[in-house]
Design a binder for these strands. Sequence first.
DNA 1: TTGTGTATATTCACTGGTCAGTATACATAA
DNA 2: TTATGTATACTGACCAGTGAATATACACAA
Lengths: 212, 212
Amino acid sequence: MSETGRSTRERILQAAGKLFYGEGIRAVSVDAVAEKAGLTKRTLYYHFRSKDDLIAAYLEIRDQPNLALFKRWFAEADGDVAAKVEAIFRNLARSARHAKWKGCGFLRTSVELVNLPGHPAMVIGRAHKKRVEDWLCSVFEDAVNPQQARQLARQVILLLDGAFAVVLLHRDPSYMETAGAAAAHLVRGLMPPPRKSIKAANVRRTIRSRTG
Amino acid sequence: MSETGRSTRERILQAAGKLFYGEGIRAVSVDAVAEKAGLTKRTLYYHFRSKDDLIAAYLEIRDQPNLALFKRWFAEADGDVAAKVEAIFRNLARSARHAKWKGCGFLRTSVELVNLPGHPAMVIGRAHKKRVEDWLCSVFEDAVNPQQARQLARQVILLLDGAFAVVLLHRDPSYMETAGAAAAHLVRGLMPPPRKSIKAANVRRTIRSRTG
DNA sequence: TTGTGTATATTCACTGGTCAGTATACATAA
DNA sequence: TTATGTATACTGACCAGTGAATATACACAA
């Protein structure tokens, strides 16, 4: 029956998500996923062809919501594009304070599969990061010289992924804010100067007149 | 016999290094390391108490040479501090073009041990990154407002580790150069302006005379 | 309504293999 | 004879994946 089938599949994916993200794909056995989902391993193998399939599905369903979260944080933030980008990092820093936070599932999976570059999960991971980069690029095209948008998007991605790695290593979310400040600085460096000089907040950001 | 013992230990560490770095610590069995070292597992266990011990030793011996390499690349580069930092990224980009390159062993190990924050290898990894950060900090203290040196060092570290992750994911070393450009930009943004204004070359690299 | 076939969904119990670590013995040198 | 170093062969646990049987539900014919 398709309804029961779908919900079983979802229960498996939910269990796999928690375990794979929380402990890593190699540290989690198929038996553990099945047990967490409340069914037998054989049933799991009825719904997924292999563990690799399950891993790919685990990342697949995280792609869209992940990007949507970034977009929401960006949209809901006040200020210019630089401030909106910085807001993404600030929100991530907040997430990173939860004990269950374990960095970026895409990056971590790519590390665990480092010698299987063609693995479906690797393909999905690359596509996800590319999608985030493309979105940032489109955002920057409206704010800076479009010729520089791609490079800027990549630099922000580098700071983002660097922060994922460093915060995970040191378990210190403040690196996420440091990355956000750097990202905002890079964006501002390419933005045209505002019409009205603003006495900018008590934060450490200042406006720079390029004419000198 | 201490001499044979030491060289045996070194053979084990060499084999472990190649395998752990090349395939990841979880993907490599103790048997595989022993075989690569040309001895039996039992002999390996005579020289190392456990696999975890071996993993820690594998990282330990990479700490100093790794930092030394950064220092050498920095010292041998021409130009101002920003250019010298960028040179580190350029050299890393060159390394990343080799097929055997698999990113940063410290970061990758920390991902594989994500749920064992007290693991000796994690402690060593954190110490290593901290040492690089401290070195960068000391470098920046002579080039920018010392109060901003720590933050700047962290931002460069974030770009560095981000580049490790992103280049590994996409297998595209050009991200390393993009990260270097961002790092140089961040450094320059905090450096005192040079005496003579320069009409900046077609590349983004310029030579600066500090004497003016 | 009852019986029968069929596709879906699930279970138990198993296989073949790997892995970290060890018990035991043997060799060599001080 | 005692300490050091090496080898063979093993243990117990775990793990990805499977074989064979069973349960459920729906379709359609009698």
